[in-house]
């Protein structure tokens, strides 16, 4: 296969029927492997890893916190990519996939925030610290909220897809900008504060391998959810079109 043939093969999945048929086939595999990885990773991490000498047993929260935080950002990146595909190639599946991914990403953001807060309570002595990372996740959550609200607010699906795509692009730039602004702002507030959430730096192998399995589980779960929810959105769109045709014929 040449490169362009391969690209054409990829674009075939932009056909809603083809997408539904294919995801129907692969979805059981994704659900099963997601469940397998999540159960294996979480059980491994929860029952069979030692406590950290500084954080005690709270280190076990890492198996939920890091994967969900990772997926919170990846989901937005995926939405950005599919929004661009919609704007350039006008494939409905692409726009609907972005819509389907948003609630998943928002949930991941909430999980990352909640586990972070619960972990922070005994570690920092406070539920909430205006740490740059926590703050930018809160802002990311607000972007998810606005994005989903805009989808819900507009009746015409093509208009909604166009507007949310542009919002996603503009929002990405501003979310990135906020990340740097927040970094700067908090340094400005307390100079030399030495709180660091950067656990990856000192994560030992015993924690690392179950963490990898959990990350794989979250990625697979995300893919399964997005495929499934995109299918739902395609059906919702088809229902809408059929009803409109009926109204015209009546």
């Amino acid at each position: 296969m040449t490169m362009s043939q391969r690209m054409n093969a990829l674009w075939e999945y932009a056909n809603p029927k083809k997408f539904l048929a294919t995801t129907e086939r692969v979805l059981p595999f994704f659900w099963a492997s997601a469940a397998l990885c999540l159960v294996a990773g979480l059980v491994w991490g929860f029952f069979f890893t030692p406590d950290d000498y500084r954080q005690g047993s709270t280190v076990k929260i890492i198996y939920l916190h890091v994967p969900s935080a990772l997926m919170a950002i990846n989901a937005w990146m995926m939405m950005l990519a599919t929004s661009l595909v919609w704007l350039v190639r006008r494939h409905h599946v692409s726009a609907l996939a972005a819509r389907a991914a948003a609630p998943v990403g928002a949930t991941m953001t909430v999980i990352a925030l909640i586990t972070g807060a619960i972990w922070g309570q005994p570690m920092w002595g406070t539920w909430w610290e205006w740490d740059p990372r926590l703050t930018s996740f809160l802002i990311l959550f607000l972007f998810y909220l606005g994005y989903m609200a805009l989808w819900e607010a507009i009746d015409n699906p093509d208009t909604a897809a166009d507007l949310t795509s542009v919002l996603c692009m503009v929002g990405s730039v501003f979310a990135l900008l906020s990340r740097y602004a927040v970094n700067f702002w908090n340094q400005g507030l307390h100079q030399g504060a030495s709180l660091s959430l950067d656990k990856e730096e000192h994560v030992a192998d015993v924690f690392y391998f179950p963490l990898l399995v959990c990350i794989a589980g979250f990625v697979l779960l995300f893919i399964a959810l997005v495929f499934y929810r995109t299918g739902t959105e395609i059906r919702a769109r088809r229902i809408r079109a059929l009803m409109a045709r009926e109204r015209v014929q009546a």
Binding site: L150, F174, F184
Partner: peptide
Amino acid sequence: LLSLLVLPLYVPTLIFGAE
């Protein structure tokens, strides 16, 4: 909805301006 969409976009401007 307008407030919900615009406020997150205002964050960087507010941070640097107030700073």
